[in-house]
C-alpha cells in the first residue's frame, strides 16, 4: 500500500471522461444490500449502480438511511458495533464485504468528507500530510507537493498558503470543510463520499464547495448526500431518492426533477413531505 501514492497511474477518469454516458464504467455495484442496527432494518434491498466520474446525489427525508448508505460504501458503518449487513457491494468488481478485503485498503481509495468539518487539532500542513504519512510517504519534498496539490485541488490554497503551519482550528467553518476535502484528496482516492458537506456552511462557502464538486468530478466519482434539492439538481448527474431505507427511484437527475416516475419522489421534491 505504501508505494501506491507515488506510483499510481494517471486516473482512468481521464480516458473515460469523454466517453458517452452509457459506456462509463461502474465504480460501485450494489446488490440487494440490507443493513440492520440491531433489529432496526435501516437499508432494505438497495440496488444501485454508480458510474465513474459522475456525481451521484442521495436525497430523502431525515432518517431514511442516506448516511447509513454512504457509510456502508467505505465500511465506516461497521464502527457501530450492532450493525449487521448482507448483500453485495462490488467496488470495481470486488465485493467489499469479502473476508480478505482490508478496510484500510478500501478507505484509501474511497475518501470521505463528513457533515461537520473535522480537522485534526494539528497544523494545516499536518492535516493534509496525515493521510500520505499514514500510507508511508516520508519524503518532505513529496509531502510538500502533495500538500500544495491537494489544497489547490480543494480551492483553498490561496487562502492558506502563508499559514500552513498554523493550527487548522483557526480557519473558518467553510475553510475547514474545504481543508477536509483537501485532506481527502491527499490520499489520492478514486471515489469521494460526502455526507451533507455544506449543511454547516453559509451560502457563499456552500457555493464554493458546490463549484469544487463540479471541478472534482473530472477526476473523481462523487457520491453526495444532501438535504438541499437545489443542490442535488445543481451538482449531480444522477439522483437516488431514499425513503425508509429503500431506494424509491434512481435515475438521471434531470429526469428525477422534471419527470419522476414515482408519485412519492414527486411529492418529496415538490416539498409535500419530508
Amino acid at each position: 500500500m505504501d508505494t501506491k501514492l507515488t506510483t499510481k497511474p494517471a486516473k482512468e477518469g481521464a480516458k473515460t471522461m469523454n466517453q458517452p454516458v452509457a459506456a462509463r464504467q461502474s465504480v460501485y455495484r450494489v446488490n440487494d444490500l440490507n443493513l440492520w442496527y440491531g433489529d432496526d432494518h435501516a437499508l432494505k434491498d438497495v440496488n444501485l449502480d454508480i458510474k465513474q466520474n459522475e456525481v451521484t446525489a442521495i436525497i430523502g427525508p431525515s432518517g431514511c438511511g442516506k448516511s447509513t448508505f454512504i457509510k456502508t460504501l467505505n465500511r465506516m458503518v461497521e464502527l457501530v458495533p450492532i450493525v449487521r449487513t448482507n448483500g453485495v457491494i462490488e467496488y470495481h468488481g470486488r465485493n467489499i464485504f469479502d473476508k480478505d478485503y482490508e478496510v484500510e485498503e478500501l478507505r484509501t481509495s474511497v475518501g470521505m468528507v463528513f457533515q461537520q468539518p473535522n480537522p485534526f487539532p494539528k497544523s494545516i500542513y499536518d492535516n493534509i500530510a496525515y493521510g500520505p504519512r499514514v500510507h508511508g510517504v516520508k519524503n518532505k519534498k513529496i509531502l510538500d507537493e502533495i500538500v500544495e496539490r491537494s489544497l489547490r485541488g480543494a480551492a483553498i490554497w490561496e487562502e492558506v498558503k502563508d499559514r500552513l503551519n498554523e493550527n487548522a482550528y483557526g480557519l473558518s467553518g467553510g475553510q475547514q470543510q474545504r481543508l477536509c476535502i483537501a485532506r481527502c484528496l491527499a490520499i489520492e482516492p478514486d471515489v469521494i463520499l460526502m455526507d451533507e458537506p455544506t449543511s454547516a456552511l453559509d451560502p457563499i462557502s456552500t457555493l464554493k464547495v458546490e463549484e469544487l464538486v463540479q471541478e472534482l468530478k473530472k477526476d473523481y466519482s462523487i457520491i453526495i448526500v444532501t438535504h438541499n434539492m437545489q443542490q442535488a439538481a445543481r451538482v449531480s448527474d444522477k439522483t437516488a431518492f431514499f425513503l425508509n431505507g429503500e431506494v424509491v427511484e434512481f435515475d438521471q437527475t434531470d429526469r428525477i426533477f422534471s419527470n419522476p416516475s414515482d408519485k412519492r419522489t414527486e411529492d418529496y421534491i415538490s416539498g409535500r413531505f419530508g
Binding site: 500500500m1 465506516m76 485498503e105 478507505r107 463528513f114 473535522n118 496525515y130 499514514v134
Partner: peptide, 12 residues
C-alpha cells in the same frame, strides 16, 4: 469525529 476522520483516510 477525530477517530472517524483518521479511519476514513485508511489509517489503521
Amino acid at each position: 469525529a477525530m477517530r472517524h476522520a483518521s479511519l476514513a483516510l485508511g489509517a489503521s
